[in-house]
């Protein structure tokens, strides 16, 4: 299905929460307000003709200059062969977004990774621990203002 058509379906259903369609990206992306993200994702997964059964990738983006953080959800449908990206803009000083773990269970680990690398907090997550870095590691390495520590435990980093 065309991205424009998916955008129109979403706009008809959720109105003002669907903010923008960006067709220059691959896959085309829809910017969604952070309040409605779980409902939008649930709809995209279950709606007839959309069937985005697969959360292909969940990533964070640090837009330091603009004071924002973005969470990008790449969705794919094996049934229809179409893809779309959902973007959620967050405040960089306290990035909070609701978890989509209940929609796609795989989001559990994706969100842990985004938390580990960017410090994005996923509210309602069942097990929000670090996944790649050691648990007593300080800071979130993918943030643009991250400062590398000099030492960790007994050795130089």
């Amino acid at each position: 299905m065309e991205a424009k058509k998916i955008f129109d379906i979403l706009s008809g259903k959720f109105g003002g929460s669907i903010q923008q369609l960006q067709e220059s990206t691959f896959p085309p992306s829809v910017v969604v307000g952070s309040d409605a993200i779980v409902e939008v994702c649930d709809f995209l997964k279950k709606a007839e003709g959309l069937d985005f059964l697969s959360l292909v990738c969940l990533s964070g983006v640090d837009l330091k200059e603009q004071g924002r953080m973005t969470v990008v959800y790449h969705l794919g449908s094996m049934k229809h062969g179409h893809m779309i990206a959902i973007k959620v803009e967050l405040d960089r000083s306290s990035p909070h977004v609701r978890t989509v773990e209940k929609v796609w269970p795989v989001a559990n680990w994706y969100e842990r990774e985004a938390y580990d690398m960017f410090g994005i907090v996923f509210d309602g997550h069942s097990d929000l621990r670090r996944i790649l870095m050691p648990e007593d590691w300080e800071g979130h390495p993918m943030r643009k203002d991250y400062v590398y520590p000099k030492r960790y435990h007994t050795w130089d980093v």
């Binding site: 790649l132 870095m133 390495p141 991250y146 590398y148 007994t154 050795w155 130089d156 980093v157």
Partner: peptide, 13 residues
């Protein structure tokens, strides 16, 4: 160069 995750040589430990 600039890896946050990797130990820079096992002779450190």
């Amino acid at each position: 160069k600039d890896s946050y995750a990797v130990l820079k040589g096992v002779d450190k430990i």
